[in-house]
Design a protein around this nucleic acid. Sequence first.
DNA 1: TAGCACCTATAGCGTTGCTATATGAACTGA
DNA 2: TCAGTTCATATAGCAACGCTATAGGTGCTA
Lengths: 242, 242
Amino acid sequence: MSLDGQLPPKMRLLRAAAELLANSAGAPVSTRQITQLAGVSAPTLYHHFGDKEGLFDAVVAAGFEEYVAGERDFAPSGQPLEDIRRMWDNHVQFGLNQPELYLVMFGNIRPESRPAIVADAESLMEEMLNKAAAAGQLNVQPREAARSILAANVGVTLMLIAESAAERNLELSTMTRDAMIFAVSADPASGPAAGSTGKSSVVVAAIALNAALQASHSDQLSSSELKLFLEWLHRISTSTAG
Amino acid sequence: MSLDGQLPPKMRLLRAAAELLANSAGAPVSTRQITQLAGVSAPTLYHHFGDKEGLFDAVVAAGFEEYVAGERDFAPSGQPLEDIRRMWDNHVQFGLNQPELYLVMFGNIRPESRPAIVADAESLMEEMLNKAAAAGQLNVQPREAARSILAANVGVTLMLIAESAAERNLELSTMTRDAMIFAVSADPASGPAAGSTGKSSVVVAAIALNAALQASHSDQLSSSELKLFLEWLHRISTSTAG
DNA sequence: TAGCACCTATAGCGTTGCTATATGAACTGA
DNA sequence: TCAGTTCATATAGCAACGCTATAGGTGCTA
């Protein structure tokens, strides 16, 4: 009944909690279950993790590291928007593989408690979107794009988790994914003439330059000049009119 | 400490549970708290609702009726897609007004337990999208569109709930909303994208911005600001570094 | 009045998260 | 070598939890 006796109790507690959580099907997992499976007694848990929530936070943190590793693992394809697609799919797959863990991570967010993980996931995606922006492929600020895409990504994953595995239809994911990516991407189709609906080419170019400047460390301007320059650039790239 | 003594105990239990849930800030709400606030004793709860989850389900059902009422309340504008926008905004507002209830309804969904509510919300939106489809404004099947939009809607709402009310930026909602609606609509406006140059550097971006600025008449900067801005831009775009 | 549902209360069961206290092991410095 | 200190674990138990066995009170119909 107990996990491999040779690991340190802290590890055994982590693994026991993760295992029980993964198989709990939503039912609450008691500290007694965890400590029994780990082969330790109650106070050991509290010595290492403070309280039950501390242990669960640690489990979530471990799960998040796995998630991040998955998001970073593939090599950049050179096409940032294609990489965003892979990030999206990887996110969905992570949620479907570990639904309980995912629900704790993204489904139970409260204002005061846990947005750190979401913020990390956000900046992970923002990082990738910066490359797209630098390539002039972005229509909006990378941060806004990241938040929007991630929100939709979470929503889709939650909805897929809610469905029984039998009737799951991944087309919901790909369709929503492409819709979001298309929405934030600059469509350089018909040149600068198409000023009707989308952002103007000024805004697109400004966003691209902004991202490019952030990435490289150009020394053409002094730091004070650069500061003011970026401020103006921001003003241009956040304008809605063209 | 007890709620108005003249309502039947079942009602008082419902209200007490709803009130405690709304103010719990995520902390668990005990049956003892509920029964005490309702002014009844423990078995009464179980007589009327079976168990704690039954009571919470009833609270959620009441909340959902309120949600549905809000979704139906406004008169159809005659423009189905505009109505979808209002449904979206109403959904977000409901979530921000009653975050705890919303999290129970949409944030804690487990495969086997609770997709009924989501299914209802789905068909509510699908109903509206059917009108859009009938008017030839839809790009995809109404059901797929409804699922996709609702997923994004939930994701956005959860993300907004997770943020402290102070730093909430509703632009995330409108941006994602319009992206999703545009994606499913048969709008023949701005055409699809083609490939871009692929090159990305500060210089290329600066040149593009320069050209774009010359062509357009952006008023985001004053004339003196613009002059200096263009000078710096020139310095950057004529630099040899990439 | 009797009988019968319905609704509620008293009291208490087993389990939960957590802790006051104590014990053992490992290391430190003289 | 050994007292002193720190770390890690165990025994035992508390208050609060969800829930229920049982019984008493109410309002009906006859």
